[in-house]
């Protein structure tokens, strides 16, 4: 069982592996993530692979449309792992 806070921490940590320069406090959790962090498609795939490795969950491409904001990603992870 993972709490929302734990899920958020995992997401931020995984994100920092891709974009070490991001400042957590500057991120708006309710706005599209990829624009804010400037993730290209390779970064995005690596981000999802990072979550996959960390939590052992498969994230099919058909779910990408549900993963827009950081809040979306956290909710998604909770629904998969929770």
């Amino acid at each position: 069982m993972m709490t929302e806070e734990e899920a958020r921490d995992v997401v931020i940590e995984t994100l920092k592996n891709i974009a070490p320069e991001i400042a957590h406090e500057d991120l708006r959790h309710d706005r599209p993530l990829r624009y804010q962090v400037d993730l290209d498609s390779m970064d995005w795939l690596n981000f999802l692979l990072g979550l996959n490795k960390r939590l052992g969950i498969e994230i099919p491409e058909s779910d990408y449309s549900r993963l827009i904001t950081l809040d979306d990603v956290v909710d998604y992870l909770l629904s998969k792992v929770g």
């Binding site: 498609s41 390779m42 795939l45 692979l49 996959n52 498969e58 994230i59 099919p60 491409e61 058909s62």
Partner: peptide, 17 residues
């Protein structure tokens, strides 16, 4: 690509690039 990726493990996923 979508069909191909749906049957591949995540680590072998292809990008349009």
């Amino acid at each position: 690509l979508s069909a191909e990726n749906a049957r591949r493990p995540m680590a072998d996923r292809l990008l349009p690039a």
